[in-house]
Write a protein that binds this DNA or RNA. Structure first.
Lengths: 240, 240
DNA sequence: CGGACCATTGATAATTGTCAAAATTCGTGG
DNA sequence: CCACGAATTTTGACAATTATCAATGGTCCG
């Protein structure tokens, strides 16, 4: 307690420690969390600002404490390919904690966004002190691998319709809330963003969504949300 | 030494310890390696046999000590999507070491293949004893993440030509050997396999390769190798 | 040498990308 | 709260690419 009062707390976290909600740190006890919190470096980015530049070496592990961000690379034919979408309490940089590799992706704020960064050296110290954290890191990387494998599997479908259906189903779980008329998804990305994530043209996405709307499966509600009216139909589409 | 003579050595490894060449274990000293070698379970698979079934929980970390294998999932539209290609000294299962998740992919032997498996429990014991191994696992997962990110980036190119060029360039580094007339690649996969890795139709791959042969960039040498005659041209193709 | 397997080629259809224009949506400032 | 302008999205028409199906040709291994 005394210890923590000596710290400059992360301003973004109000009266809570933001790390508390980060799975990576969830097995630490209060004291350990506070010890770490002291070392977190807070930062603020406007929408559109770059949080991490491709080609540079990340200086630690960065938690999105507020807002959201996308990790993008550019495909050989010059298009933007979104690799990850980071929402509140997601983090990146774990892959660089024990290596000096340069990042191949750029991270850009999708909204006004606050981050907390724990420097590599501090993290390594922490790992030395609490070896269990290494196991947590392994778990974290494992689920990142799982996510990428499934994204890759999805990209393997030649048909745009299948890819779109799968992504919507994923979004239902992550960003959906039930209403009387169906499940309302608050989209984390613009149409263009979704298209760039799926590796298809924005126009193709538009067309397919209109088509799905035409047969009553869903309904676009402005640019930022979609109402899903028939999940079962989506599921059968996503299966080929 | 006495210790090791009490072990049943892995038959596949002849007089060498196969783990010696596995990066994951390369930081262990001889004694540690031998200790671990005692616990490795060797197994042999004919070409086409399944080493790991999707939907089952891997029992440990499996090293390909001889031969090769592919890790595949099936896309929503029923096609085979190759996620990984494992050659000698590659391994899989690291992602399941500290979780009970089921594998989403199936691993199938591409040739007659020998493996050595270290059971989860034994691995965990090893990690407890030599905590540095956890760091090695982190490194191993990190490079797996890097590989997947780049594969995803590649799948984002809408054009088949670009994807093919990128893959060939990758193969040059991994399976190529210089000759007088150019770089000879001994292909690790059949045409169909390459197409399934790239997420395109086998016929499309054929056509593009013929086309590249037509302009003198490469030359198919039977079904199992390709001679690359103009790497620079390939590079510029792969950049869009 | 033969037969199974794999790869190539051709013709066609279906899908998707591209470019341009019109329509919507969104946020801002009055 | 409304209106306006910028940004985003949708739609249309067309071109380009790729998938599909079927037939042919080649390769590999016993």
């Amino acid at each position: 307690m005394e210890n923590s009062s000596r710290c400059v707390r992360c301003d973004n976290c109000l009266h809570e420690l933001c790390m508390y909600k980060v799975p990576l740190f969830s097995h630490l006890d209060r004291a350990e969390l506070e010890e770490m919190a002291c070392k977190m470096i807070p930062k603020y980015y406007e929408k559109g600002e770059i949080i991490l530049h491709a080609g540079t070496t990340p200086n630690g592990i960065t938690v999105i404490s507020m807002g959201s961000a996308k990790a993008v690379t550019y495909t050989a034919d010059g298009r933007e390919q979104i690799l990850y979408l980071f929402s509140q309490n997601d983090y990146f940089g774990d892959r660089f904690l024990f290596s000096d590799e340069k990042s191949t992706f750029t991270v850009e704020a999708l909204q006004n966004t606050s981050t907390c960064t724990l420097l590599k050296a501090d993290f390594q110290e922490l790992v030395a002190k609490y070896p269990n954290i290494a196991i947590q890191v392994i778990g974290s990387l494992s689920s990142r691998v799982a996510h990428l494998e499934s994204a890759l599997q999805n990209m393997g479908s030649r048909s745009a319709e299948v890819r779109i259906s799968s992504l919507i189903l994923e979004y239902i779980d992550m960003y959906g809330s039930p209403t009387k008329e169906g499940t309302l998804i608050t989209l984390p990305l613009s149409r263009e963003g979704i298209a760039n994530y799926l590796g298809i043209a924005r126009e193709t996405l538009s067309r397919k969504l209109s088509q799905l709307e035409g047969v009553g499966i869903l309904k676009s509600e402005g640019n930022k949300s979609i109402l899903i009216k028939n999940i079962e139909a989506l599921k059968s589409l996503s299966h080929g």
